[in-house]
């Protein structure tokens, strides 16, 4: 398990941009202005269905209150498991009697609206990435991402695949990586306890990071997702 490891050459936020992050995005046809998205890839009828607002960073509450909230968040992690690969199988032992994450206040949640931890279990193909982006954006913040398995970190055994993205942190902000192929349930639980530490320390602000660097994330996503047939930001 490594959290934004210095030795792998990843900076503190876990990101090295493939597109230089100059603030001036070259490709701007999906941005109407600073607050509005165009949803240009959708049909006119579909544009009515979806929201066109950009995400905005949410301010944390006043110090001690935020600390209290963070304590509640850390002790009530509701998991949205995205079983993209073999790592998804690791969540099942976690909820059964042997490991029993419910004693830590965690429970699997079937809908992104109610979950607070997004658990990506394995390699991410382009088709999956679309669903990941949609599910991630539908979650209500503060939201955290735990990526399990080596495939989610650097492509793993699919490093030379034509259809697998190698670094999820270029497309959505990732808080904790759990290494292993596949990691044992203990390793996954260690990852969750690391996430807890981060939340308690107030460092797990992936939602705000996503909102601040929205242009950069979107550009990366649009670079690999060629048939973008979904709204630019899913509420």
């Amino acid at each position: 398990m490594s959290y934004m490891d210095k030795t792998t050459g990843i900076p503190e936020q876990g990101i090295t941009p493939p597109i230089p992050d100059t603030g001036e995005m070259p490709d701007r046809e999906w941005r109407k202005d600073d607050k509005t998205l165009t949803n240009a890839e959708l049909t006119l009828e579909e544009q009515d269905w979806f929201c066109d607002a950009r995400p905005t960073p949410a301010k944390p509450a006043w110090g001690p209150v935020e600390k209290f909230y963070n304590w509640a968040r850390a002790n009530s992690l509701w998991i949205l498991a995205f079983g993209t690969g073999c790592g998804a199988i690791e969540l099942r032992p976690l909820v059964t009697a042997r490991y029993d994450i419910s004693r830590l206040g965690m429970q699997p949640r079937p809908t992104p609206r109610q979950a607070s931890v997004f658990m990506i279990g394995g390699y991410v193909s382009i088709k999956t990435l679309k669903r990941i982006v949609r599910s991630y954006e539908q979650m209500q913040g503060p939201k955290f991402v735990v990526a399990v398995c080596s495939c989610a970190i650097n492509g793993g055994m699919y490093w030379d695949s034509y259809n697998t993205v190698k670094r999820i942190d270029q497309y959505i902000p990732v808080d904790v990586y759990v290494t292993g192929c596949m990691p044992r349930p203990e390793a996954v639980m260690a990852g969750f306890s690391k996430l807890k530490e981060l939340i308690l320390a107030g460092k797990a602000e992936g939602q705000n990071l996503y909102a601040e660097k929205f242009d950069w994330y979107k550009a990366n996503q649009k670079q690999v997702i060629k048939d973008w047939n979904m709204p630019d930001y899913n509420w």
């Binding site: 509640a72 009530s76 029993d100 419910s102 509420w235």
Partner: peptide, 29 residues
């Protein structure tokens, strides 16, 4: 329920934490 299923189960005050957490969410749709 958890003890019957052989688990330790969530703490008794877990519903309160869940409610606090849900109300502390920064966005709602």
């Amino acid at each position: 329920f958890a003890r019957v299923q052989g688990r330790l189960g969530p703490p008794v005050w877990q519903p309160f934490i869940d409610i606090i957490k849900n109300n502390a969410k920064r966005t709602a749709v």
